[in-house]
């Protein structure tokens, strides 16, 4: 079935709500969502399962934690990724630590959904891609789907997972469209090799995967055989797939939508430097947001964000490096 990324999210929610009556969906504007990914769900499942909440992020996330501890499967939509910060204590101190500090007495089937809105003139407080903050918070799974199929399958996997999962949808991909196999199950923690190659590995996170794939014809033109990998989830991270590729190519560029310092890209880079030092033929390249808050003016955001041109240039540079 052909569907957009946004529709894929809706279809996944619909399917899980249908399959299991213990699934409830909390959210801000969830009954009448502007972006359509909860369209009509309230009419199908009722206000007791598709619940409009007050703008009380801490209370909502904590409520979803408590309800999950007591046998429900909870989904919270906080909409914009920056709103995670408002609920930070409940996410970092409660959701992330419940399994561990109570030593497995509870299951915590909780999914927190947010969208990242970068490159959309949303300015500093609505444009963050804060997945690295949560990578440094043990106890949370993190998924970053980059195509409709992954958006669908990974959301379903997140919902049925008995651990807290933060699901970062990428708003820049919302209207991408492709065939989605609704029976395709993707486990959290499996990277995807989007295209095989032998010269260089390009590891991508979230929306960077589409940018890298758009770049492919130009790379082929330059006679560069790139292996593009989409991590799909950051916790757990499928580092083996990445390592296998880098062992083969000896060169790697990592493209991340996050700010560069302590990013997913820098973490992957650190692992590769630690474990594959002798396999590397060149320094590891990183393309990410520069370390400044996201500016409003279009040209300023383009200046600091990972673009097609920047990834291309980085790949070319790494390819040209000789020891």
């Amino acid at each position: 079935m052909k569907m957009t990324y946004g529709t894929a999210i809706r279809e996944a929610l619909l399917k899980e709500l249908e399959d299991d009556k213990s699934v409830v969906l909390f959210g801000e504007d969830i009954q009448h969502n502007l972006y359509g990914y909860t369209d009509n769900l309230v009419n199908i499942f009722g206000k007791k399962r598709v619940i409009n909440t007050p703008l009380s992020e801490a209370a909502i996330v904590g409520t979803a934690v408590g309800a999950a501890m007591c046998g429900l499967t909870t989904i919270v939509d906080l909409t914009v990724a920056n709103f995670l910060y408002v609920a930070m204590d409940q996410i970092a101190n409660m959701a992330a630590k419940t399994n561990y500090m109570y030593n497995g007495q509870f299951k915590l089937p909780l999914t927190i959904m947010v969208s990242t809105l970068y490159n959309s003139s949303s300015a500093a407080q609505h444009s963050d891609r804060p997945h690295p903050i949560f990578m440094n918070t043990p106890g949370l799974k993190i998924v970053v789907p980059s195509c409709p199929q992954d958006a669908y399958s990974l959301l379903r996997s997140a919902i049925v997972d008995e651990n807290p999962v933060i699901y970062f949808s990428d708003r820049s991909l919302f209207y991408t469209k492709e065939d989605v196999d609704v029976n395709c199950n993707i486990k959290i923690g499996q990277a995807s090799v989007l295209t095989e190659g032998s010269d260089i590995t390009v590891v991508t996170i979230s929306g960077c995967s589409k940018i890298a794939m758009d770049l492919l014809p130009e790379l082929i033109n330059e006679n560069i055989s790139a292996e593009i990998i989409d991590v799909r989830s950051l916790v757990p991270l499928d580092i083996n797939t990445i390592k296998k590729s880098v062992r083969k190519t000896g060169r790697v560029v990592i493209a991340d939508t996050a700010h560069k310092s302590c990013s997913a890209a820098s973490e992957i880079s650190s692992i590769l430097a630690e474990d594959l030092f002798y396999d590397l033929k060149a320094p590891i390249g990183i393309v990410a947001y520069d370390d400044v808050p996201v500016p409003f003016a279009k040209n300023l955001e383009l200046q600091i964000m990972p673009t097609k041109e920047k990834i291309y240039q980085k790949v070319v540079n790494i390819m040209q490096f000789n020891k």
Binding site: G66, M69, M94, F106
Partner: peptide, 20 residues
């Protein structure tokens, strides 16, 4: 349902239990 050392942070979890 556990105990939180962060002042005030148990209240939302309790609301969730009551919701369930």
């Amino acid at each position: 349902l556990g105990a939180s050392g962060i002042v005030g942070s148990g209240l939302p979890v309790a609301c969730g239990a009551a919701f369930a």
